[in-house]
Amino acid sequence: MQALTSHRHMQLYGALLLLPAAVLLATFAYLPTISTLINSLFLPGIRGEPPVFVGLENYQVLIQDATFWKVARNNLFYALGTIPTSIALALAMALFVNARLPGRGFVRMAYFTPTVLPMIAAANIWMFFYAPQIGLFNHLLDVVGINGPNWLGDPSVALFSVIMMTIWKEAGFFMIFYLAALQSIPPDLKEAADLEGTGRWSFFWRVTFPLLMPTTLFVMINALINAVRVVDHLFILTKGGPNNATNLLLYYVYENAFSFFDRPYAATITVIILLVLAIVATVKFTVLDRRIHYQ
C-alpha cells in the first residue's frame, strides 16, 4: 500500500514536471490546430452573422480551385529547387571551412551572414540585385553584352529568382549544422583511412557522409518546413505575382485570410499543408531512421 502511494506520488511529480511544456505546446500548437480544423468546416460569417457549418464544402472548393493547384505546383518546384541545392551547398561549404585554411573564422562568418540578416532586409537587397534596369545582375550582364531578363517580372523566370535567393539565405544556416557534425567526427578515423591508402572521395562517401546522415535528415526536415513557410520575402519581392507565378502555399493562405478575408478557406489550405507535412516527416523519420547511424 505504501509502495503504491509512493509510486503515485512519483507519477504526479513527473506529470507536474511535464506541465509547463505541455501547456505551452497545447496553447500554441494543438489548440490552434484544432481550431483551424473546426474553422475549415464553416463558411465565413458576413456582416456579423454567425458562420454557417458547411461540412467538407471548403475542401470541394479547394479541389476545384485552379489557383490552389498552381500554387501547390509552384511550391513543389520551389521545394525541389531549394532543398537539394541548399543542402549540397551547405555540405560543400562546411567541408571547405572545416579544412585548415587561412582566415577560416572569417570565411565561416561570411557564409553565415545571410542567415543573420532578417528576411525582409535580405529581400530588399535582392530587390536591388534583381531590378530590371539598374539592378546589379543586369548591370553586370550588360558589361558582357547580354540583355538580362526581368528577373522578378517575367513569369518564366520569377520563381527561379525566388529560389536563388532562398538558397543563398538557407545554405549558410544549414552549414552550421554540418560544421558542428563534421567537428564531432574524430580525426583519427581519417588517419586510419589514410594509412590504408583511402582516397579523399572514397573516404567522404564511405565515412564522412554516412556519419553526417543524422544531420542531413534533420536539415532535410527543416528545409522542407522552410519551403512551405515562405511569406516574408514574397511579400517584398513579388507579392506572389506575376499572375501567381511565384505564389507559394503559405502566402496563398495569407492572401486568403487577410486580403480576401476568407478565413475558413485559409484554414482549409492550412489543414492540407499540415497533413502533407506530417506524412512526409513521418516517412522520412521511419524509413531513413532505420538506415542512419546515430552516435
Binding site: 574524430p186 583519427d188 578515423l189 588517419e191 586510419a192 589514410d194 594509412l195 590504408e196 591508402g197 583511402t198
Partner: peptide, 14 residues
C-alpha cells in the same frame, strides 16, 4: 601514409 606498407593500431582504436 598509404604508400608505406604500414598498419597502425590507434589508442582510441579509430
Amino acid at each position: 601514409p598509404g604508400d608505406r606498407g604500414i598498419s597502425m593500431v590507434f589508442q582510441s582504436y579509430a
